[in-house]
Amino acid sequence: MYADPQKRVLTAEEAELIREKLGLNQPVYVQYFKWLATSLQGNLGYSYKTKAPVLDEILARLPNTLLLAGSAIFLTLLLGIPIGAISALRRYSLVDYFFTILSFIGISMPGFWLAFILITVFSTRLGWLPPVGMRSYGQSLGSIQEIIDVGKHLVMPMLAMAVVEIAYWARYQRSSLLEVLGQDYIRTARAKGLKERIVVWKHAFRNSLIPMITLVGLTLPDLVNGSYIIETVFGWPGLGRMGVQSILIRDYPVVMGVTMLSALLVVVGNLLADFLYIFVDPRIQQN
């Protein structure tokens, strides 16, 4: 019941004028090529809603989304890989079963439902974390307090986004390490009488990381997907929330811009993964 939309009937001339102004009376393909031509020059058009350049709207929100997605990736690497490695090394132990079941649950839970749980526990019941937005206003903000404040706002959306990814990464890391441990050169290394620690960490673990890089490429679209829902639930002022909002009100230039950027983020992420490959895997370097 927010806006009480007052229904106004536009006259045919008024509507025609607006259509002409927005170029909507041209055939779709003409509109498309016009858009393509201008966007290649860096002009993504103007938001129907705010009249501001779409690029401005996007650039203002991009850092927020990158902060959220970036910290989710960081957390994923920090927890996913060690958990996977431990599971693999202690295969079929209690720890392994525990983490296996936990990561299955993580993969199976809808992110927004996890968000509900987090909000209920940490915000409603315990009152530790703010449930909405990216920062509080109203305190005298020194730079350190401000960072802490943003950090507090970041915790829950980051967790809600990262849990699924941590689970995936742990599963992949586990099977990747298991596969490497079964390779001949590991057997050779062990036969040579190398210390188990060196065999595992220097040979097996490092090699098991190489296939993980591919996962980066798969994680990025997932994170972008997640951002639409998680940013909406937590009122995070990022691209995802803007994307959902603009779909709901049919703000086409913004929808196009957000899609472009999402795709671009994914492509750039994949490129980074490729470079990482070259960096990590000496076999590729030689070619």
Binding site: G217, L218, L220, P221, V224, N225, Y228, I229, G243, V244, I247, L248, R250, V255, V258, T259, S262, A263, V266, V267, N270
Partner: peptide
Amino acid sequence: FLSLPRLFLIMIVNS
């Protein structure tokens, strides 16, 4: 199709 953010595209098509 694999590298695109699928949910967003589905949302757009669905809308």
